[in-house]
Design a protein around this nucleic acid. Structure first.
Lengths: 231, 231
DNA sequence: GGATATATTCATGTATGCAAGTAGGCTGGC
DNA sequence: GCCAGCCTACTTGCATACATGAATATATCC
């Protein structure tokens, strides 16, 4: 439910911290303190506290009273459920979109896909490619939700998506092949919508959403300190 | 993703305010100020500010910098989308539950339903009945999600549900008949799960979730000042 | 030497003063 | 009477001092 609730200094600190957390510059488990952060951004504890509270409500920080504040460990169970929610809602929304689909809107989506194609062909270093591609990927999905008249559904999803985005950054580092796969999925999704082929669309969405997750086993094993122990 | 992030005084103020907002003791559109609230709860502005921020992130308050803080108007478009999400996810979760359903768990749910029966038969005034029934209603749904192994999905729903709960309180005032209907739906849902009858289950969920909303037209017209103008 | 009690340190929670900005009234000119 | 400009009152944002509590280090006793 996270629309912009902070303003001014709080908002700036919030954005900066969130970026650092999502891109793992502040790795899971690391400790940050209000006073240090305040000093670092040349402000006082109050805006920092506001930002901390916001990030905690998104699950990115864990505030332990009188002990300290820590970047939360990645919770694979949580991510699994986030993916479940995304898959379920996306299938429903795009099913609705199929019935109201108007080909005249298609150029908007094609435009986004073309940009993704260009990103993949451009000569960017892996981190920058992943970062930009993820932005465009979000744009793709947002546009589809918007076309289906379910913009609020998307903003709900965004409010729980932080943890997953962080995980995705973690996996993506240097994996151009995965992005290529995403791009192909996007094309397929658009085609199936256009052809009103719900069954294939449904399958593609499922794979599109879960593939990263399933391919993650070994890389997770390499960095166990970033993850919450399986309960 | 609203798990308990506040502690101590902040948490107490938060709970108290939330209750008052959800039960319309603080009606939509009304203004509250940090300083007044702090005085009322015999504390300082800081915990009140924390509670305000939290409530704002749930969409229950609107903080306008340097102007004031107001209980947000009920947004029917938003509620419509919340119901869409609930319906979609609940159908998926209970579909999963059907395939793994073990009758030995059934007593837990039956116990909750029995309590609902007793509430309806008891001689409570309308407000108190509605209040207690809603609590039990939530318990019913939480238990089903838990049995399906989708507890996180439920906590996601709870984090976006505030606005809808407020609306429901608004409609429920004195409507025992509606609660009776809910109770009957619950029985039907449990039966269809038990019989592995997904189609009927699906229909019942849809009606269960949307019925209130559709019956709300006239009562909304009576209190236009509580609602966000349709865009 | 080991265990217990104590003190120090450092974190966040809370209280409060000041800054900044908005809205609306109030005053003066016309 | 009306309009413009200022001015006051009130709001939240920000800064900072102090309170409280948890963990660790330290000292003291056995």
């Amino acid at each position: 439910m996270n629309t912009k609730k902070l303003t001014g200094t709080s908002e700036a600190v919030y954005q900066k911290l969130k970026e650092q957390i999502l891109y793992l510059e502040l790795p899971p488990g690391s400790a940050i303190s209000e006073i240090d952060t305040a000093a670092r951004y040349e402000t006082s504890r109050t805006p920092v506290r506001d930002a901390f509270k916001m990030l905690a409500s998104e699950g990115l920080l864990e505030i332990r009273p009188h002990i300290g504040t820590f970047v939360s460990l990645i919770d694979l169970n949580m991510i699994s459920d986030i993916l479940y929610i995304r898959e379920t809602l996306e299938q429903a929304v795009l099913r609705d979109l199929i019935s109201s689909y108007d080909k005249s809107q298609e150029f908007r989506v094609r435009f986004i896909l073309q940009k993704q194609r260009e990103l993949l062909d451009a000569d960017l270093d892996a981190d920058e490619l992943a970062r930009q591609f993820i932005i465009s990927d979000n744009e793709f999905h947002v546009t589809l939700y918007e076309m289906a008249g379910k913009k609020n559904v998307m903003s709900f999803l965004k409010s729980i998506n932080s943890e997953y985005e962080r995980f995705r950054t973690f996996l993506n580092l240097g994996e151009r092949r995965n992005l290529m796969r995403l791009y192909e999925d996007h094309n397929a999704i658009l085609e199936y919508i256009s052809n009103r082929d719900y069954d294939r669309l449904s399958d593609t969405i499922t794979h599109h959403i879960y593939d990263f997750f399933n391919a993650s086993t070994e890389i997770v094993y390499k960095h166990p300190e970033y993850f919450q122990p399986i309960k």
